Simulated assay, not measured.
Amino acid sequence: MGVVGWFLDDVAAVAQTRADGVVLPKPERTIELVELRSQLNARGHDDAVIVGGLESAAGVADARSLLSAGATGGLVAAYVAAYVAAYVGVEDCIADLGGRRTAAGSEVLYARSRVVPAASLAAVAALDEVVTAVRDDDAFRRDAAQGRDLGYLASCASTRPRWRWPTRRSPRPRPRPSPPTPVPVASEQGDGMVDGEMVDDVHVRMAQVTLGRAPPP
């Protein structure tokens, strides 16, 4: 039964609750998503969403094919729903590789960078790593800012109550301004300049994504 075989009791327990979904940790084959969906459906929980955890070397390496299951058509798509989100589990991944964790985090940058485009191509929400330094709010803010720069929509957090404060206050767009912003205006006729830097269509698209995530004025 693959990874799911370790969690059949959990699946049965979830099916008796009003939980919205489940997490499938460390998937390395598409069949594991199929098996989990089958178990949920068999217990009348076919509306449950599934979040995948890319936490092993194989899971990170095959991120695109794993997250595209159910999203690209074919037999799998006809049988299961796709993942709604995926998180990168760098602690387990670096242990799998035999590496060492550092405060700088350069050893897990590749894993974090690989999961984002895989999730985007599969139309799956990407969730960033957990920061294990639970008493270091500054470390969380720095990590959240780097994750945002990479393209992550949110960060995973420890279940410790104190993480609610830095999680809710991690970097986010300011309220949308009412007048047009300089970036789109500068490039309406092609390349433009804003604060001494060239602006073209790609910067407009990045600005629109950022503004789209901000609350209304």
Rank of each mutant, 00 (worst) to 15 (best):
G89S: 07
R142H: 08
L97M: 12
Y110T: 00
R101M: 10
G147S: 11
A123Q: 06
G99T: 07
D143S: 10
A78I: 02
V90N: 01
Y87E: 04
S120Y: 10
V124R: 00
A81G: 14
L150A: 11
V84Y: 00
A78P: 00
G73F: 05
R112L: 07
Q146I: 05
R135W: 06
L127F: 05
A144V: 06
D138K: 06
E107M: 13
A126T: 03
Y79E: 12
D137I: 02
A71D: 15
D136Q: 05
A104N: 10
A122L: 04
S113M: 07
S106V: 10
V131T: 13
Y152A: 04
L109P: 03
A85K: 01
Y87G: 03
A103R: 14
D92L: 05
D138F: 08
V76Q: 07
A95S: 13
A82F: 03
D92G: 06
D149V: 06
Y110M: 06
T72C: 14
F140G: 06
D96H: 04
A86S: 10
V88S: 07
R135I: 04
V115I: 09
A144C: 09
L97D: 04
L121S: 15
D128V: 04
A103M: 09
L109E: 13
A85E: 03
V116F: 07
V116I: 15
V116N: 03
A82K: 15
T72D: 14
V84Q: 12
D92Q: 05
A119H: 01
L121G: 11
S106W: 05
A145P: 10
Q146V: 10
L121Y: 14
A133P: 05
R100G: 13
Y87P: 05
D149A: 15
V80C: 10
A77V: 09
T72Q: 14
D143V: 10
A144S: 12
A122S: 14
L97K: 06
A104T: 12
A126I: 05
T72H: 09
A145M: 04
A133N: 09
A126H: 09
G89A: 05
R114L: 08
A82S: 14
A103V: 13
I94E: 05
V130I: 15
C93R: 05
G73A: 10
A85Q: 06
V115K: 01
L109R: 14
V80R: 04
E107I: 07
V90S: 02
A139D: 10
G89Y: 01
A125P: 00
I94V: 12
A103L: 13
A119E: 01
V108I: 15
E107F: 11
A95D: 14
A77C: 11
L97C: 12
S106N: 02
A81E: 14
F140L: 11
G105I: 02
V90H: 01
A111C: 08
D136E: 10
T102W: 12
L97V: 11
G151C: 13
A111N: 07
A118V: 00
A139F: 05
V84P: 02
A71R: 15
V108P: 04
E91H: 11
F140T: 07
L150E: 08
S120A: 15
R100M: 13
P117T: 06
V84K: 12
R101L: 13
D96T: 02
E91R: 08
Q146W: 11
Y152D: 02
A85R: 02
